[in-house]
Amino acid sequence: MVLARRGGIGRYYDVNGWLFVAPALGLIALFMVYPILWSLWMSFQSGRGMMMKFAGFANIVRLWNDPVFIKALTNTMTYFVVQVPIMILLALVLASLLNNPRLVGRGLFRTAIFLPCVTSLVAYSVLFKGMFAPDGIVNSTLQAIGLIASPIPWLTHPFWAKTLVIIAITWRWTGYNMIFYLAAMQNIDRSIYEVARIDGVPAWARFTHITIPLLKPVILFTTVISTIGTLQLFDEVYNLTEGKGGPSNATLTLSLYIYNLTFRFMPNFGYAATVSYVIVVLVALLAVLQFYLARERDR
């Protein structure tokens, strides 16, 4: 017992420490730790509404045979695999271009590219739904400049609907990631770039051999954040597709499927909790994998 040995002053110190941290820890325990353990327990239960009984691994078996779940999982992974790398690379390129002090009007460019971050996920999804309407501004512009002959069915074709979700998320989050990179670039000594330039290292090589290695911790951080965000995708898809994840589940995400299982269909809390644990496991696995990959390259 450290407490008893320390005596009066140590005890006073320790009691104060606990008093300061107790409200936050209590709330996190009650509204995060307790529910996450409860849903783990629930995932071994089955039944309708509140009448549940122990079902062992029945829910996990059901996952394998549920084509809608497989669809939602595939869609979510597609968003993650396609969107996160595009966005991170775009944000990195923009950050290194805008970090150049000789670029005229870079403050203005930065503000403009960061601006999407002020919109709510619902507001921008609604905007995108209107802009990508069959005869909407996007299709009519693309037709006017001759890029496409007939309107793209953004909201009704499985491929284009997925593409629209990816375009929308990239619009909303690229500036957010860029800000992290710009902040980290403040700590890079500009003379490194000058020396490399004088030695004749081309711009692209400076980017891949100086910028990216030096920003690795931040890139890792933003990748983990984006991964967690993408795996939980809900607001955008719900609002672009009237809550259905259509056309024919082509945009359905795991979170939206859980919502539908719980609040739209006949509620099956046990199975929905099992699907939610798929997200928990994926987030944990991918975070570990990303940290591992970042460490490997250090050696």
């Binding site: 996190i28 509140m50 967690i228 809390f269 939610s276």
Partner: peptide
């Protein structure tokens, strides 16, 4: 707990 997705909390929270 930063890694806990909200989807895994919403059913217990709703019941609570």
């Amino acid at each position: 707990t930063l890694m806990i997705p909200f989807a895994a909390l919403m059913i217990p929270l709703f019941i609570m």
